[in-house]
Design a protein around this nucleic acid. Structure first.
Lengths: 231, 231
DNA sequence: TAAAATTACTGATCTAAATCAGTAAAATGT
DNA sequence: ACATTTTACTGATTTAGATCAGTAATTTTA
């Protein structure tokens, strides 16, 4: 596998969140006393743009998208897999409104931690706060990559980006069962559904990927990587 | 003035960075011993994508752009005025490479603080770290707005966004001397130079702005705001 | 298991915006 | 003060990609 440290649209963190290891037993207990576990069905909304932020959301299992809604279309800011915090950029002191929405791609279990408790820990445990800063920095750099991909690459490059992201970061395999619709894939790569269909067909014709029913395999990884860079 | 809390492409923080007020006298002394003041001329590069991060950059005076370079064009991620930290998203532990470039729009004085010292403070002073988290959160939310503007608004909306940003956040006046070129304005609003010229002319014809030599005045603020929202 | 509703796909058309190709006007250097 | 470079501007052309309009194939619901 090539290095994945170039500009691309993938936002999936490979390592899970280790910040909680920096808390003392008492601090962990404090969190556990002030948290609740919630199960979300596919498509369900975890948080809605404009509503009040009362909790920090940690993904136990599942996969979600974080997005902004326009008049007719939506911009997916990032996708977040299990083991990560969802709404870190809402812990901002004085800010109590979500600046984005989030919805589950599949059945998802989230742990909601009281935001006051979380803020208290940030203000009293410096190593914990520093590890949160690390995550925020990484998120920010990933967002820049996606920003670049969606504004400066064309369709082939954008779709290649997402296919590589799915293979490398989400399914961790060169062939995977694609249980998201073309429409969702279009939303992810910021193009129309029709375009996704055409691009996928082109990739199939060019023997870069193969599609069998719902199963997608990446045949020519190098080619797809090339397209992701220069397409 | 309308509230500016909707999705727009402006990335200018209105309040200056207060994080340093949370440091003790000794901590401030530590920073002062490990900092250096550098003056940059217009157009000069403060940091370059791919090079090593050795300092945290604080803008004393001036205005800079933070950007990603593509094959032929560049994506401006944000513009940062005096009183702010430039490369917070590079304080990430273990990361020692800039993931973006920055260049001065005008003569700029920057204070470079040794990144090891900065990281040390983050790991030992929780309120300081928490205030840095606040800034990172705000940056992140602003980036989302710009992301949305550049991907989901069309030319008129994007240009309106930038004009409003210049007026409200940078010059803090409804008429200002525009000392940046059309090319730079194009880069800022993510469009071609020719398009900027045409849009500006249209705005002038529609009596939304007036242009006299280099002087730009916003005549119909409400109209421009409308365009920024729905254009 | 039939009907209804999504989803997948295809080709034709349309359009926003870039690119191209040029001239005019400033700004800069010598 | 003149030559050179950069910037501003304009109209014509091109193009990437969206939208439209339809059919076929699934999936969901009853």
């Amino acid at each position: 596998m090539k290095n994945f440290d170039t500009l691309h649209s993938c936002t999936v963190r490979t390592d899970t969140c280790e910040c909680f290891n920096l808390l003392s037993l008492e601090e962990m207990a404090l969190i556990e006393e002030n948290q609740v576990e919630i199960k979300y069905k596919k498509g369900e909304v975890l948080c809605k743009h404009g509503t009040f932020v009362s909790h920090v959301i940690f993904l136990q299992t599942g996969l979600i998208k974080v997005y902004l809604e326009g008049e007719h279309d939506t911009l997916i800011l990032k996708i977040i897999p299990a083991g990560n915090l969802v709404n870190l950029s809402s812990v901002l002191k004085g800010n109590n409104i979500f600046h984005y929405s989030a919805a589950a791609y599949e059945e998802t279990i989230a742990i909601l931690i009281d935001i006051k408790v979380f803020r208290h820990l940030l203000n009293t445990n410096a190593p914990f706060a520093a590890s949160i800063i690390d995550i925020l920095c990484e998120n920010s750099i990933q967002t820049f990559g996606r920003f670049f991909s969606l504004t400066h690459k064309q369709l082939y490059g954008r779709l290649a980006d997402i296919l590589l992201c799915l293979a490398e970061r989400i399914f961790k395999a060169m062939n995977f069962e694609l249980n998201i619709t073309r429409k969702e894939l279009a939303e992810l790569s910021g193009m129309s559904t029709e375009s996704v269909i055409r691009m996928l067909k082109k990739f199939k014709d060019d023997k870069i990927i193969s599609m069998d029913e719902k199963k997608i395999s990446i045949i020519d990884y190098d080619k797809l990587y090339q397209i992701s860079q220069f397409g």
